[in-house]
């Protein structure tokens, strides 16, 4: 049964949350026995900016190129979800399955070509 197998993921998930907490709690214990310095001040808790105090908000408007890359990624990720079931059964099927997938990938390759042509993939 599937649930039983995936129960092990759940177990490993709990352990993997505990794993990084171990050194962090060690660090916390060092602060408890006054072995780790803890005297924060305004200069220390300011963000790192090469010694100059940071002005302005952090968010500036980023270039749309980032969004275009994410867009291409989403489209291809969905394509992957369709292609993996095909890949599993590919060797058991006859030749005509090949044509079906060729159409599918061809349409998406056209999308890639479109993005290429209209310079969506250009990193300025």
């Amino acid at each position: 049964m599937i649930v039983e197998e995936y129960f092990r993921v759940f177990l490993l998930l709990i352990l993997s949350i505990l794993f990084p907490l171990l050194p962090l709690s060690g660090s916390y214990l060092f602060s408890k026995i006054n072995y780790r310095p803890f005297n924060s001040n305004d200069v220390k808790s300011a963000i790192y900016e090469c010694g100059v105090e940071s002005e302005d908000i952090t968010w500036r408007q980023f270039n749309a190129k980032y969004f275009l890359y994410a867009l291409g990624f989403v489209i291809f990720d969905v394509e992957v979800i369709f292609l993996f079931p095909w890949a599993v059964i590919h060797s058991e099927q006859s030749y005509d399955i090949f044509l079906k997938v060729a159409i599918f990938v061809g349409v998406l390759a056209f999308g890639l070509l479109y993005a290429w042509k209209w310079r969506a993939l250009e990193w300025q």
Binding site: F67, L71, V74, I75, D77, V78, I81, F82
Partner: peptide, 13 residues
């Protein structure tokens, strides 16, 4: 899932 991805792409654009 496919439609959701397409929809999110267009809506956020």
């Amino acid at each position: 899932l496919t439609v959701a991805a397409a929809e999110a792409a267009i809506a956020l654009a």
